[in-house]
Simulated assay, not measured.
Amino acid sequence: MCVVRCIEGTARLGMVFRHPGSAADAGTATPGFLLTAMEWYGRQVEQLDAVHSGKVTLTGAGAETPAKRDVLKSAPIHRAGPGATPPRIAALPGGPAG
């Protein structure tokens, strides 16, 4: 579990996130952090809107590696259309990732 802030867009269950600049951005690897659970003020939720913080569970290869202040960007498969801004989340200090 990691404490994050949604800094852009809306993060939803089932989205895939990665570190910008990773091999996945270059098309040489598959993105690997699947968003499997979200908690907001003690309640399980299905989405986290921009500027809100919550606890999330990421699964997949390297999902335990985000450090505080790392910014994770959603994989291109989640973009709404041409020019749409992909959701981004940032790990916050104080959680297991901090």
Rank of each mutant, 00 (worst) to 15 (best):
C6A: 08
C6Q: 00
C6R: 00
I7T: 10
I7W: 00
I7Q: 01
E8T: 12
G9E: 00
G9D: 02
G9F: 02
T10D: 05
T10Y: 02
T10N: 04
A11K: 00
A11H: 01
R12Q: 15
R12S: 13
R12W: 12
L13K: 05
L13S: 05
L13I: 13
G14Y: 14
M15L: 08
M15T: 02
M15Q: 08
V16N: 05
V16A: 03
F17E: 04
F17Y: 09
F17I: 15
R18F: 11
R18K: 15
R18I: 05
H19F: 15
H19S: 10
H19Y: 15
H19E: 13
H19L: 14
P20N: 05
P20Q: 07
P20E: 09
P20R: 01
G21W: 12
S22G: 12
S22Y: 14
A23K: 10
A23F: 15
A23C: 13
A24D: 04
A24S: 10
A24P: 00
D25Y: 11
D25Q: 08
A26S: 14
G27W: 15
G27I: 12
G27L: 11
T28A: 15
T28H: 15
A29W: 04
A29M: 08
A29H: 05
A29V: 06
T30W: 05
T30R: 14
T30I: 13
P31V: 08
P31I: 07
P31G: 11
G32L: 04
F33A: 02
L34Q: 03
L34F: 03
L35T: 01
L35G: 00
T36M: 06
T36D: 02
T36Q: 04
T36N: 07
T36K: 03
A37R: 06
W40T: 09
Y41D: 09
Y41E: 12
G42K: 05
G42S: 10
G42L: 03
G42H: 05
G42N: 10
G42F: 02
R43S: 12
Q44F: 02
Q44L: 11
V45A: 04
V45H: 03
V45R: 01
E46W: 09
E46H: 11
Q47M: 12
Q47P: 10
Q47F: 12
L48Q: 01
L48K: 00
L48M: 10
A50K: 10
A50P: 04
